[in-house]
């Protein structure tokens, strides 16, 4: 009962926030709303028993990635060209096409999914799984893990390379 109340509360907030993030005018407001969105999503993860993922979400997503967004918005002029360009009619057609497509796919998905819900679901949600995640991550997934660290390294180097000012002396 408590779980259901918390879930529907969080879900309604998340729905409103997700819509607001993409419709709001100012980038700063959007980032702030996205922070709340990710924070409440971490709440949903905690509700699902994934405490470790919830905390990782708060530390990395809300605490680091979105700070980067904030940072960039403040470095750039915050009120720059906010005008929306493009053809209104074309956009409307695209919008309805995407919405209809998503409705169609969601119905298809639930049709396909129906047998799964009955049989395979375990009754109790896994709790206290930080230890198991660590074990699996470093035993079964050790190579993907190493590759992910390489990816991060690549990301750091390329971000610096892309964003730095072109240097004055041409020798570099």
């Amino acid at each position: 009962m408590g779980e259901a109340i918390s879930f529907y509360f969080l879900a309604s907030i998340l729905t409103v926030l997700s819509i607001a993030v993409v419709t709001v005018q100012k980038p700063v407001v959007a980032v702030a709303l996205l922070v709340f969105n990710l924070f409440f999503l971490a709440g949903v993860y905690a509700l699902l028993g994934a405490h470790f993922i919830a905390v990782i979400q708060v530390i990395i997503y809300a605490g680091a990635i979105l700070v980067l967004f904030m940072f960039v918005i403040m470095i750039l002029n915050p009120d720059m060209d906010l005008k929306e360009t493009g053809d209104k009619g074309k956009k409307f057609i695209l919008f309805s096409a995407v919405s209809v497509g998503f409705l169609f796919f969601s119905f298809k998905m639930f049709e396909q999914m129906a047998p799964l819900t009955k049989e395979d679901i375990v009754s109790e949600i896994l709790e206290d799984n930080t230890y198991e995640i660590g074990l699996q991550l470093f035993e079964d997934y050790i190579w993907p893990f190493e590759l992910a660290s390489l990816l991060i390294l690549l990301g750091i180097v390329s971000a610096i390379l892309i964003s730095r000012k072109p240097s004055q002396n041409k020798s570099v």
Binding site: I56, I65, F69, F71, V72, L154, S158, A159
Partner: peptide, 18 residues
């Protein structure tokens, strides 16, 4: 999810640099 978050961090860093 762990790997997706890693990917998202890279994507955000490079995207914002661009």
């Amino acid at each position: 999810v762990f790997f997706v978050i890693t990917l998202a961090a890279c994507e955000a860093g490079i995207g914002l640099a661009m």
